[in-house]
């Protein structure tokens, strides 16, 4: 069991933190007509996606997961943990057709991986979309071979919405997942792949997906067959979590935290030891833990605005976040 208490603490902090941003429900559904439109889109996406949603069976380990074909020549997006430790998988299409797949690379920290069908295509595929713009309230469709390949049924369709973006490249939806769904696709209403099923928590709303943008960022390494990173369910311990490069000291009464040491991007942005940081993108920071939670929701490469006090005078700085494991 990994640090359940720590997670608790973090979560409680998350719920208490910060100022409220503007509340905007995305794509509002105000009438039965809106729901009908939604239904049409879901049916269209599910119908098309069915052919490309494959089961991946690793005969070497007995693991069974899912994947989605994302190009005509048979490139399959899946979760890193589905293919970890094997070189070959059996790719099973919903109609039972079975072909061999060569395992390429995987980034365990993002839980993404690639498999290439060995036989020549063209294969039925779904296009990749973008995961970064997704926010709470965006409608999504999840698919996968729940509990393993079952010839008596097609891969089950689940409809829901993003309930939380982040941490990092991950996002959470209320499309309920179970074992076997791992590596299966998450689609937006246009039928673009926006995520890959990764893990679940106890709550029905807690279904986690790796954002599809991770593939774009890591494409060359994945294609080259590199396997790296670490599977880490606790986002605070993920090697690729976004950081500023600040060691935090004690909290300050009334909000804010003292900077103990600085390196990397924070140093580059001019933040110094002894500064008090009061806000992150306008949200008041209570203490170091609170700051880490706020940062966990961002991604490396994001620019954040830091508001602070130095020698009694307010200052502002902009910091470009870096991956923890890239700090120097």
């Amino acid at each position: 069991m990994k640090q359940p208490r720590f997670f608790h603490g973090v979560a409680a902090v998350a719920l208490l933190s910060g100022l409220m941003g503007p509340v905007l429900a995305r794509e509002p559904v105000g009438s039965i007509e809106d729901v009908r439109k939604l239904e049409k889109q879901i049916a269209a996406v599910a119908g098309k996606a069915m052919k490309s949603t494959v089961a991946l069976i690793a005969e070497a380990t007995g693991a069974s997961g899912s994947g989605v074909v994302a190009s005509a020549d048979g490139m399959i997006l899946t979760a890193a943990h589905v293919i970890e430790g094997v070189e070959e998988v059996q790719v099973v299409f919903p109609d039972g057709k079975q072909v061999k797949g060569k395992v390429l690379g995987a980034n365990l920290s993002k839980d993404i991986g690639l498999v290439k069908i060995e036989d020549e295509g063209p294969w039925p595929f779904m296009e990749r979309g973008e995961s970064k713009p997704l926010k709470a309230g965006d409608w999504v469709i999840a698919m996968g071979h729940s509990t393993g390949f079952d010839p008596s049924r097609t891969p089950p369709v689940r409809f829901g919405r993003v309930v939380s973006d982040g941490p990092g490249n991950f996002m959470t939806t209320d499309c309920t997942l179970i074992g076997g769904d791992s590596g299966g696709p998450l689609f937006d209403l246009d039928g673009k792949v926006v995520g890959i099923n990764s893990s679940i928590g106890e709550a029905l709303k807690n279904n986690n997906h790796a954002g599809v943008d991770g593939f774009k960022d890591d494409w060359d390494r994945l294609i080259a067959g590199e396997v790296w990173g670490e599977l880490e369910m606790n986002p605070m311990r993920n090697q690729e979590r976004p950081v500023m490069g600040i060691n935090f000291g004690p909290a300050v009464r009334g909000g804010g935290v003292i900077v103990a040491a600085v390196r990397g991007p924070a140093a580059k942005a001019g933040i110094r030891p002894g500064d008090v940081i009061r806000t992150l993108d306008g949200t008041v920071v209570r203490d170091g833990g609170n700051m880490q939670v706020l940062l966990a929701k961002k991604q490396a490469g994001d620019r954040v605005k830091v508001g602070g006090v130095r020698s009694g005078k307010p200052f502002e700085a902009e910091v470009e976040l870096k991956q923890m494991n890239q700090l120097r």
């Binding site: 990994k2 640090q3 719920l15 309930v163 939380s164 928590g201 106890e202 709550a203």
Partner: peptide, 26 residues
Amino acid sequence: ALLTGAFAQRGGPEVPLMRPEEAEVV
């Protein structure tokens, strides 16, 4: 992987790291 997540999060709030404004939207 699936269950480590479950254990780590058991007993906590529904979705850890969910922002209050996200909860409100949902």
